[in-house]
Design a protein around this nucleic acid. Structure first.
Lengths: 219, 219
DNA sequence: GTCTATATTTAGATAGAC
DNA sequence: GTCTATCTAAATATAGAC
C-alpha cells in the first residue's frame, strides 16, 4: 500500500476516533511511524487530507443515495425490508466518515468549500427518502398531504444526518452495529403511521429486536 | 453593568456568531475594549467562561423543560396551541446558546464535565416530550404502542437537539424566528398522525403559514 | 520518498506597573 | 480593576541532507 493512501486511511481512523480538531499532522505521522516531513511531502497539509477524505465520502455516499432512484423499483414495490437494508447501508457509510459531522461548524469555517458538498448530500438524502416514503405509504392507510410529506422528508433527513452524533452524545462508545440498527428503527418508526397492515409485520419484527435490546442488560 | 458580566455576554454573542473554537480570549477582550490581562483577572480562562455559560444555559433550559411536568395540566388537556407555544420557547432558549451544539465533539473533549450536563438535558427533553405526546394523542385515532412511543420521544428529542444545527447547515444565516417556527412545525408534524380531528385544525393553521413561507420569495 | 531540524504562527496565560 | 509587556505551549509548515 502506498504511503499516500496509508496517510488517508490512518487520518480517517484517527479523525473518527480522536476527533479531527484534536488530531495533528504529527499524530498522524507518528501513528504511521513516518516523519512529519514525509507527510508534508505527500499532502500540502491537513486541509488537503480532509478535502480528499470528503471527496471519497461524497462519492461513496452519493452513489448509494442515488441508487434507489436510478434502479427500476423492485417488483414488490415498497417492501419494508428492502428499505431497512438500504438505510442500514447508508448509515454504515455515514459511520465510516462520522468525524465530518462531529465538528461541522469549525470544519466549515476552516474549509468553506465543504458547505456546498454537505448541502448536496442533504439534497440527495431528501430525494432518496422521498422515494422511500412514496413507495411505502399504504393506499389504504391515512393519506399523507403534500406539505406533511415534505416535512416528514425533512425530519428524516435531519435524523439521518445527526443520528450518529446524537447516539454518541448519549452513549460515548457504543457498538456501531447496535447504533446503526437503532437508527434504522428510529427512521422506520417515522413511517409506521403510514404503513399498510402487511408491511407492519416486518416493522414489528425489527421493533421486537429493538425492544429486546432495550431490556438486555448489556449497554 | 459589571465587567465580569459583560465578558460573559460578549463571549456568548461571539461564540454564537463566530464559533467558539474560532473566538480567542483576545477577540473577546478586543470586542469589549479591555485588555486580555483584564479578562484573565475576572476568569481563569476560556474554560471557565464556557463552564459558566453552560451553567446559565442548563439552569434556564432546565426550568423551562420541567415546567409542564410540575404545573398542573391545562383544563383543556392537550391543546396543540399550548404545545406550539411551549416548543417555541424551548427552541428560543436553545437558540440563545446554540454555540454549545455547533462543535460538541471538540467541546466535550476539552471540557468532559459538560457531557453529564448535556445528557441530563436530553433526559429532561425526553420527559417533557413524553408528556406532550401523551397529552395530545387522541383517544379516537390510531393507538401508539409503548415501544413506538419511546422511539417517537427519541426522534423528537433528537430533532429538538439538532434542528438548529441542521437549519444552519442548510441556510447559513437565516432569520431566527423563521428557523424556530419551522422547527416547531417539524416537531408537531411528528405528532400529526396521532392528533384528533379537533386538534388538527390548529395544526393545519401552522402548516398553512409554513406553506406560505415556503412559497414566499424571501429566503 | 523519507528523514532531521527548525522556522512560523497563534492561542492561552502570567507578571508586575499603575 | 485595569493596563502593557511578555512567556509558554502547541500546531502548522518548510529547508535541506540522505
Amino acid at each position: 500500500m502506498k504511503t499516500r493512501d496509508r496517510i488517508l486511511d490512518t487520518s480517517l481512523r484517527l479523525f473518527n476516533e480522536e476527533g479531527e480538531a484534536h488530531t495533528t499532522t504529527i499524530d498522524i505521522a507518528g501513528e504511521l511511524d513516518i516523519s512529519p516531513g514525509n507527510l508534508y511531502y505527500h499532502f500540502k497539509g491537513k486541509d488537503q487530507i480532509i478535502a480528499e477524505l470528503f471527496e471519497q465520502f461524497q462519492l461513496a455516499l452519493g452513489q448509494t443515495l442515488n441508487a434507489p432512484l436510478e434502479q427500476p423499483l423492485h417488483e414488490d414495490r415498497g417492501r419494508v425490508e428492502d428499505n431497512w437494508y438500504y438505510l442500514y447501508v447508508v448509515l454504515e457509510e455515514l459511520y465510516q466518515y462520522r468525524f465530518l459531522y462531529h465538528n461541522m461548524d469549525d470544519l466549515l469555517r476552516r474549509y468553506p468549500k465543504l458547505a456546498r458538498g454537505f448541502r448536496r448530500i442533504v439534497g440527495q438524502k431528501r430525494a432518496a427518502l422521498a422515494a422511500i416514503i412514496d413507495s411505502v405509504v399504504s393506499d389504504e392507510g391515512p393519506t399523507l398531504p403534500r406539505v406533511q410529506q415534505q416535512v416528514l422528508v425533512e425530519n428524516m433527513a435531519l435524523q439521518l444526518t445527526y443520528w450518529l452524533s446524537y447516539d454518541r452524545l448519549l452513549h460515548e462508545e457504543r457498538d456501531a452495529q447496535m447504533t446503526i440498527h437503532q437508527g434504522v428503527l428510529q427512521l422506520l418508526t417515522m413511517l409506521a403511521p403510514y404503513l399498510g397492515e402487511e408491511q407492519m409485520d416486518f416493522y414489528r419484527e425489527c421493533e421486537a429486536i429493538y425492544d429486546a435490546m432495550l431490556k438486555a442488560p448489556a449497554e
